[in-house]
């Protein structure tokens, strides 16, 4: 096994040993879909939603929720803790660069989000008859772009906060407004137009819209894709500029 695979596996083990994190990433989004799906009205086609059901929308929102959990809540806290405790410095004295550890942490987060997404889609399809993304390649593109965008933001948070605890707090502060614009409380389809215009330019709002495009058989729209690429570029650049190893 390569060193990188070993590191990723170790990160995965450590992630699974934090019961709260594992629950909120892997189980909670699916639980949200199940709870909303239990409301009979949410399983009725709505004219205001072009004949779609509320539960159809929330499958996409739950996928965005997994991305927000790993990228905004977990990765910054873990990476800031690694720096605070000197784990990154410890790696810098070995033949393995701390960059590899950082990469392994990001890949682990991506794998966890992918697993959580698969569970959301499977439960949505099997229990509530939510169709799988008609444009599957588009769904994968939207998922990866969304993941890259929020992970870049998470890295900037990790770069700026002094401690793991601070990383956790900042993550939580960002989590709620970002998820608000992703439609966790009010789906984009029923947002007032002014709010929708703002939401389309937020990272999770754009990710949700792109995923929704794919769910309804289209490629992600150009605006959302551009917004997400923009977040990756700007925050990726800032993360590289600002990240400190000790």
């Amino acid at each position: 096994m390569s060193v990188f695979a070993k590191l990723t596996l170790t990160e995965l083990r450590l992630f699974l040993r934090e019961p709260m994190s594992a629950f909120f990433v892997l189980i909670f989004p699916t639980l949200l879909v199940v709870i909303l799906g239990c409301v009979p009205a949410f399983r009725e086609p709505q004219e205001s939603l072009d004949g779609r059901r509320v539960i159809d929308l929330y499958v996409g929102i739950a996928v965005v929720l997994t991305l927000a959990m790993v990228a905004i809540q977990i990765a910054p806290a873990v990476l800031a803790t690694y720096r605070e405790r000197g784990v990154l410095r410890r790696f810098a004295t070995t033949p393995v660069s701390p960059l590899k550890l950082l990469g392994a942490q990001l890949v682990m987060n991506l794998l966890a989000a992918a697993a959580a997404t698969a569970l959301v889609l499977a439960v949505g399809r099997i229990v509530f008859d939510v169709p799988l993304a008609a444009q599957f390649a588009g769904f994968v593109v939207a998922f990866l772009l969304g993941a890259a965008g929020v992970l870049a933001i998470g890295l900037v948070v990790a770069a700026l906060v002094p401690t793991g605890k601070a990383g956790n707090s900042v993550g939580t502060l960002l989590f709620f407004p970002l998820m608000f614009f992703a439609g966790l409380w009010t789906p984009r389809e029923v947002m007032p137009e002014a709010l929708r215009n703002v939401a389309d330019f937020t990272p999770l709002g754009a990710a949700e819209r792109a995923l929704n495009d794919a769910m309804t058989g289209h490629w992600p729209n150009a605006v959302s894709a551009t917004v997400l690429v923009g977040y990756v570029a700007v925050f990726g650049f800032l993360a590289v500029r600002w990240f400190r190893w000790s």
Binding site: T10, R13, L14, R17, E18, T81, Y82, R85, G86, V87, R89, R90, T93
Partner: peptide, 14 residues
């Protein structure tokens, strides 16, 4: 070169 650093810890659950 093997280095043992002062104030360098490991992840809690490792």
């Amino acid at each position: 070169v093997g280095v043992q650093l002062q104030e360098s810890r490991l992840p809690d659950k490792l």
